[in-house]
């Protein structure tokens, strides 16, 4: 199926919940209401002429403070019917909630954890909603555009503040070495 046909089918089935469609993009993208993504996913997974059985990639994106939204982008592929579509949902930057799709595609479970870890949107009904790459007690979500790194992590200063003082520094001059010059 072409992306247009997929979009039309989704539009017919979900109506209002499909907010936009970008057919000219490099990967044609359907924008979906955040609250509807689970239903849309289940529909795309099971409908006989969709059969999107593989979620290639799930990525979080920070669209910046101006737009005040975080996005989650789903790249879907059907191994049976060989078509692809990209879905996008947007959630507010503070306390954004997106329903999980990890009961539809199991791979989403860790990818959603990763998106939560790095961006901070919550995934509703996720069975194991923890950080994955960063330690559990890390503060903040590093891939946000306005992320400020915490000053201390468990007593260890975090930001790298230039070189430590040059004590006992023995300057080694490159030109003195004949074998290299």
């Amino acid at each position: 199926m072409t992306p247009e046909a997929i979009h039309d089918a989704l539009q017919q089935y979900f109506g209002e919940a499909i907010t936009a469609f970008d057919a000219d993009a490099i990967d044609p993208t359907v924008t979906v209401e955040a609250s509807a993504i689970h239903d849309v996913g289940a529909y795309l997974r099971s409908e006989p002429d969709m059969l999107f059985d593989s979620l290639m990639c799930l990525s979080g994106v920070d669209y910046g403070e101006a737009q005040n939204s975080l996005g989650v982008v789903y790249h879907l592929h059907s191994t049976a019917l060989r078509h692809t579509i990209t879905l996008r949902v947007e959630a507010p930057r503070q306390d954004g909630v997106v329903p999980t799709v990890c009961d539809i595609w199991r791979t989403a479970e860790w990818h959603e954890r990763e998106a939560f870890d790095l961006f901070g949107m919550r995934f509703d009904r996720h069975p194991d909603h923890r950080r994955i790459l960063l330690p559990d007690d890390w503060e903040g979500h590093p891939l946000l555009k306005d992320y400020q790194v915490q000053e201390f992590y468990q007593g260890i200063p975090v930001p790298y503040e230039g070189d430590p003082p040059e004590i006992g520094m023995d300057v080694y001059r490159f030109q003195d070495r004949e074998d290299l010059a």
Partner: peptide
């Protein structure tokens, strides 16, 4: 880049190369 790879230094400043004297 030169093919010389054997360079070590007892401290990390030893590997800061100053090309201008």
């Amino acid at each position: 880049m030169t093919p010389s790879f054997e360079d070590s230094s007892p401290d990390r400043y030893g590997l800061v190369y100053h090309f201008v004297n």
